[in-house]
Design a protein around this nucleic acid. Sequence first.
DNA 1: TTGTGTTTTATTGCCTCC
DNA 2: GGAGGCAATAAAACACAA
Length: 208
Amino acid sequence: MVSSDPISKATMNLEEDKMLFASLVTAEVNPRLSQGHSIPTRVCRRRKKNGKGDEEGGGDAKKRRLSDEQVKFLEMSFGEEEKLEFGRKVHLAAELGLHPKQVAVWFQNRRARHKSKQVEAAYLKLKAVLTLKDKLFEAQEEVRKMTLSKNGGICNSNGGEITGSPSSSTLSYQPLVGAVEEEEADFMYVQECELNNYIIEWADIDGM
DNA sequence: TTGTGTTTTATTGCCTCC
DNA sequence: GGAGGCAATAAAACACAA
């Protein structure tokens, strides 16, 4: 059943958000986990200091930063396509005067940075939605208390009912139709709109 | 100048896919 | 089996406060 109630939608969305975040930090980040593999117990052995690598440029093992121009060019290329096929790698390397392996390494590291930023963004969004939900719940509680006091402690038959607890992520809400003053209804409407904006915003990054 | 934290480049070892 | 991807990590390069 699909609910049109914004709070219920937010709750459903939140569950999806949680799944998205979980997938980013587990399966997406480590595809092996999503394919039924256990977490590798491998502990990376410490690389020997100055361990042999294929030293470019006649044995000069010094790490060299890429120039701004090179980075700019690589960024542009990354923007077009995050993965690097052989032909493009060779072409880019020739264009920039780098070893193809350096280009491959740059893309590898760039993908890692990109992924960690995505995880961070997902976390911040999730936090923002949860905070907003808490605020909304508090406001609803406030309205409910006011309604009860106005009605002599008895919630009238048309009164709204809030179920769940502030800490619960399965909070549900039924509108307080006819039970609140117009002013209070407006306030609730603003809160719902704000939450809806978050839902829309959140839906946008779903496709990232 | 120096100590310290952050960013960037590079390596290693394991995994998947063809 | 080799190529290429990823996570984890090392270490150089850089930024910056004290």
